[in-house]
């Protein structure tokens, strides 16, 4: 009896020792990121949520007072909010252009042309450029007088083709979209290139024996094989596009020196939702109103992420 008890005791000791070592280590390591999440995500989320139902002075939590949904009434009757959502969707859908360009270019790259490696290196450079530099360089490109874009347009179609990119709403939107596409397509090319390389070559060999045309081969073999990549790029691209801020704000501030008032291009055509939030929160020091708009965006993006997650899961299983 005693011997068994002693045996059990040493066993317990052994277990305890193991716990105090490896497992304690694991709990510490694993809890750090979770603590970070609670402190810097959950808490701000909660505060922002509560703030929507209150009025407060500056950023002072102690001045919060319940205001009977007044904030919601103000924000939901603000035409700028709806406009900003439309603008954001428009800018986010420029992803389709980026993706088409990326797909076409990486398809050509998969033909293994000369200098493929160097092309690939060059194509990725815009993606690592800061949005600050990107916005300013494209502003220079779009200058009505000495800008290279207008020089091309005038050279091709005569003086009448000169566009004033900062005063015409449609032109302003096109300028922003071109800038975003220029910066974004590099990522798509790299991802597509990896997807093209991963297509099973025996599928091509089989179809060649069947005498399939290049066109058929692309739509029957290549396109289905890269569909998951397309979907991934589309979803992440739209999610990122819904949060467009940098380029939109930099364009606004640079083209219009009085943009501290929050205007963004002719007829506010460059006012994205995040910029709307930024203006409310920092120019008018109104965090409750900023929070309402933030939560709208939060719900939209969360929904998109969940759809993305679900469909990807199904895709992998199929």
């Amino acid at each position: 009896m005693e011997r068994i008890a002693a045996g059990r005791l040493t066993l317990d000791l052994h277990r305890k020792k193991k716990f105090s070592g490896e497992k304690a280590f694991a709990y510490v390591c694993v809890s750090l990121p979770l603590i970070g999440f609670i402190l810097f995500s959950l808490v701000p989320l909660a505060i922002s949520f509560i703030s929507m139902f209150t009025t407060m002075e500056y950023y002072d939590l102690s001045t919060m007072t319940w205001n009977e949904f007044e904030t919601f009434k103000i924000v939901f009757s603000d035409q700028d909010l709806y406009k900003s959502l439309l603008v954001t969707v428009m800018l986010a859908s420029s992803q389709f252009i980026s993706l088409t360009v990326a797909l076409f270019i990486s398809f050509l790259l998969s033909k293994k042309p000369r200098g493929r490696k160097i092309f690939q290196i060059l194509y990725f450079i815009p993606y690592i450029c800061s949005s600050v530099a990107t916005a300013y360089m494209w502003m220079t490109m779009f200058d009505p007088n000495y800008g290279i874009i207008n020089t091309f347009l005038v050279g091709l179609f005569g003086e009448g083709a000169r566009v004033n990119w900062s005063s015409d709403a449609a032109a302003y939107a096109i300028a922003i979209i071109i800038t975003i596409v220029w910066q974004a397509s590099g990522y798509g090319i790299v991802m597509y290139k990896a997807a093209f390389d991963a297509v099973n070559p025996s599928l091509y060999e089989a179809s060649e024996i069947d005498g399939a045309s290049a066109w058929k081969k692309f739509w029957r073999i290549t396109f289905p094989s890269i569909a998951p990549t397309t979907f991934f790029l589309l979803m992440t691209g739209i999610i990122a596009g819904m949060q467009t801020f940098d380029i939109a704000r930099l364009f606004a501030v640079s083209f219009f020196p009085d943009a501290w008032t929050g205007t963004a291009g002719p007829g506010n055509i460059g006012l994205t939702t995040v910029m709307f939030i930024y203006n409310k929160g920092t120019l008018y020091f109104n965090i409750p109103e900023a929070s309402v708009a933030s939560w709208i965006l939060f719900v939209i993006i969360l929904t998109l992420s969940l759809i993305n997650y679900r469909l990807r899961k199904r895709w992998v299983n199929v």
């Binding site: 694993v30 990121p33 979770l34 999440f37 810097f40 995500s41 808490v43 701000p44 989320l45 505060i47 922002s48 703030s51 950023y59 002072d60 939590l61 999610i239 949060q243 995040v274 939030i277 930024y278 409310k280 929160g281 920092t282 965090i287 900023a290 929070s291 933030s294 939560w295 965006l297 939060f298 993006i301 969360l302 992420s305 969940l306 997650y309």
Partner: peptide
């Protein structure tokens, strides 16, 4: 931990000002 990946915290950048001010 995985679920936290889904939370689009980037949308909360401006409201987070409140917490950091506090």
């Amino acid at each position: 931990q995985l679920a936290t990946m889904m939370i689009p915290m980037a949308t909360m950048t401006v409201p987070s000002l409140l917490w950091y001010e506090t």
